[in-house]
Write a protein that binds this DNA or RNA. Sequence first.
RNA 1: UGGGGCGUCGCCAAGCGGCAAGGCAGCGGGUUUUGAUCCCGCCAUUCGGAGGUUCGAAUCCUCCCGCCCCAGCCA
Length: 550
Amino acid sequence: MSTDLRSNFLRTQIQSDLDSGTVTNVVTRFPPEPNGFLHIGHAKSITVNFGLAEQFGGVCNLRFDDTNPEKESQIFIDAIRQDVQWLGYQWHGDVRYASSYFQQFYDWAHHLIEEGLAYVCDLSADQARETRGSLTAPGTNSPFRDRSIEENRTLFTAMRDGEFEDGSRVLRAKIDMASPNINMRDPILYRIRALPHHQTGDDWPIYPTYDFAHGQEDAIEGVSHSICTLEFEDHRPLYDWFIEHLPVPSKPRQFEFARLNLNYTVTSKRKLKGLVDDGSVAGWDDPRMPTIAGLRRRGYPAAAIRHFCEEVGTSRSDGVVDVAMLESAVRNELNQKAPRAMAVIDPLKVVIDNFEGSETLELANHPSEASMGTRSVNFSKEIWIEREDFREEANKKFKRLVLGKRVRLRGAYVIEAERCEKDDAGEVIAVHACLVPQQLGEDPDDGVKPKGVIHWVATDTAVVAEIREYDRLFADADPAKADDFASVLNPNSLVVKQAYAEASLVAADNESSFQFERLGYFVADRVDHTSEHLVFNKIIGLRDSWGSHG
RNA sequence: UGGGGCGUCGCCAAGCGGCAAGGCAGCGGGUUUUGAUCCCGCCAUUCGGAGGUUCGAAUCCUCCCGCCCCAGCCA
C-alpha cells in the first residue's frame, strides 16, 4: 500500500490530536450493518478507517452494527469479513458486534431513567411523528414525558421482559422537543421487536436504535476517531449528548466525510438489492456490480481499488467521481502485474504457404518485467488472427495486415498477405500469406519493416475459451435518478463470445488475470473457470487512442 | 421560512494571509515487436458572486447566490 499519502482533513485532525495530546492511541473502526453486500463506497470507508489507523500506528476494529435484526443475517457477516480481508486489511483482534454490548446498553438506558433523562412513551409511531413537529415548527411534548422515574423503571423493565406488543412502546431520551435539530426532539432509544437476532437469538425483545448504540459502541472499544459520512452530521450533538450523560469508559469523537459517488454507478444497498432481486444481474457478485464481491469477480485488483480510494481523496464536499478514474487505477495495476498472453476473439484464418510444420517460441510474459519470465507458444502454418486486423486494402493509417503488405506477428515473424479466399457471400474466409525472409526477432532481411504488429494463435494448438465481455451496467451517468432501472440499463453490459486462446491458458488459476495483447485485461472467472472449460471475464479494455475500428 | 453542511480547471482534490500541488479526462509530440506501456509538452493571471480589512486574500469580515442533508420505532 505504497501510494503517496496526500493531505486531507482527517489526517490533519488526527495529527493535531496526537500533537496536542488529546489522543494518544488512534483507534478507528469500520462499522457495517450486516444487511447487504459491501460496495465501492464501503471500500472507501474501509480504506479511510484502516488507512488512518495504519498511518498513525493505531488499530482499526471491524464491528458489525447489528442493532436491527430485521434485515440482517449471518450470510452478510461472512461476506463482509471476506471482502474486508480481500481488500487487504486485517481488523484488530476479534470481530466486534454491537449486539455483544446489548446488556451494557440496557444498563445505561436504566442509568438515564434514574437520572430523569429517559422515559417510556406509549405514543404510536404515527402519533410520535405528528408530535415531532416539522423542519420549521417545534414539536410538542409527549403526554408520557413526565412519568415518574419509578414508573419508567417498571415499564422499561417490562419492555425488556417481553410484556408488551411490538411497537406499542418505546424508550425515549428527554432532551428538547423544540430543538431546531430534529434528532434532539426526544429521540428513541429502544423499540420493541420480538424478533430473533442472528447473534443473540431470542435473548432480547427490545433493540437499541443506532443513535443510542453507536457512540457507546465506540466508547466501549476506545475508538478515538469515529468516522462516518456526512448525513450523520446532524446526529453528532446526540452522539455527544449520550457520551456526556453516560458513565462511558472513553470519550470518542465523531468526524464526517463525504461519501463516494461514482457516475454510471449505483451505490445504495437498497438499489443494488433491487438489481439482484429483479434479475438484472446474476447476483451480488455479478461482475457488473459495484459490490466488492462483484469488482473482485470482475477482476479489479484489490490494490487498484485501494489506490483509487487514495487518489480520489477524502473531503467534506459532495461530488461525483468519474468512473474513468477507477478504470485508470485498474489499468495501471494490471499493466504492471498481469502477464501477457494471446487470444483471438473474432477469428480469421491465415495460411502461411511457405511455412511447414510448427515451431515453439519462447515469449516474454511481460514486455518490461523480465522477472515475470517466459512461456512457450506454438507457431504453425495456420494461425488465427482477429478479423478486423485484415483488410484487402486500406489507407496508410491502418497498420495491420493488408493484401500485398506486411505485418509483424507479435513475438513471431513478419508475414506478407498475398491473396484471400472468399465465400459465396463475398466474405473473406481465409488469407494466404508468406513468411518474409528474416531471422526470428529481427527485421526482414530486405530492411522493409512492417508498420504494425498483430496478435495471433496457432490453429492446431489453440484452445477454446468462453469470453464474457462486460461493460458498464448503466448507460446513464446518473442511474440513481431514473424512475426505473430498466430504462437506463446498458443492454450490452454482458456479451458472451468464444475465443481461440493460446494453449498456455489452460493452466490459468481461477482469479488470475492476464492482458490478452491488444484486446484488454481478462481474468479467469472465480466461479466458472476450469481447465476443461475456460472462462475469462473481460476486466477492462486497453486504452485506445485509435478506436476499435478504422 | 428551522437546523446542519458544502462551493478551487470538464471530474476528483491540495492549499489554512505571501502571490493556485497532484490525479483523472482532454490535446500535441517522441519512443515502441501490444494503435498498450513509457517519456516530453499544453491544459485555472484565477479560487460561486459582490463589497470590505490588509503592503498583500482562495485563505479574514459582511452580504448575496447555488447545491446537499435532516421530520424511520433504518443505519
